[in-house]
Amino acid sequence: MTAAQIAEMASMSQAEVVALAYEEAAGGDVGRALRDAIEDLLVLEDRLAATERLVSRGFVLGSAPTERV
């Protein structure tokens, strides 16, 4: 990578860098890159939804703690 390419990458937004990475991974096929990015996003949304279902909202099943005197 040349200094000019590094400078260009440094000036890009995070979204531009990710888009470029998807395009390069797809061999320059922009349509495939878009489909791959959307597929990855949908997978992440599914994982997030599954994780959110596991997060406690402050309710606990079980007995109340007992006080020691």
Rank of each mutant, 00 (worst) to 15 (best):
E23M: 13
A26Y: 03
A37I: 02
L42E: 15
L41V: 11
S56P: 08
E52L: 04
D36E: 11
E39I: 06
R47N: 14
R47M: 09
R47C: 15
D36G: 04
I38H: 03
D29W: 01
V17S: 09
A64T: 05
R57S: 13
E39F: 05
E23D: 13
R35L: 02
V30F: 02
A49Y: 14
G27V: 01
L42V: 01
A4T: 03
V55M: 07
T2P: 04
P65V: 03
Q5R: 12
L54H: 11
D36C: 03
E67G: 08
A49C: 06
A37C: 06
E24S: 13
A15Y: 03
Y22H: 15
G27R: 02
P65W: 04
D46W: 04
I38V: 09
R35V: 01
A33T: 06
I38R: 12
R53W: 02
A64W: 04
P65H: 09
A15L: 12
E67D: 12
V30C: 04
A19L: 05
T66M: 11
S11I: 00
L48W: 11
L20C: 03
Q5D: 15
R35K: 07
V30E: 14
A50Y: 00
G27Y: 02
V43S: 13
E8T: 04
T51K: 09
A15T: 10
R32S: 07
L20G: 13
V17L: 15
P65R: 06
M12W: 00
A33E: 09
G58V: 02
F59W: 05
V69R: 12
A37F: 07
S56W: 09
A25I: 01
L20Q: 12
V43D: 11
E52T: 02
V60I: 06
A26F: 01
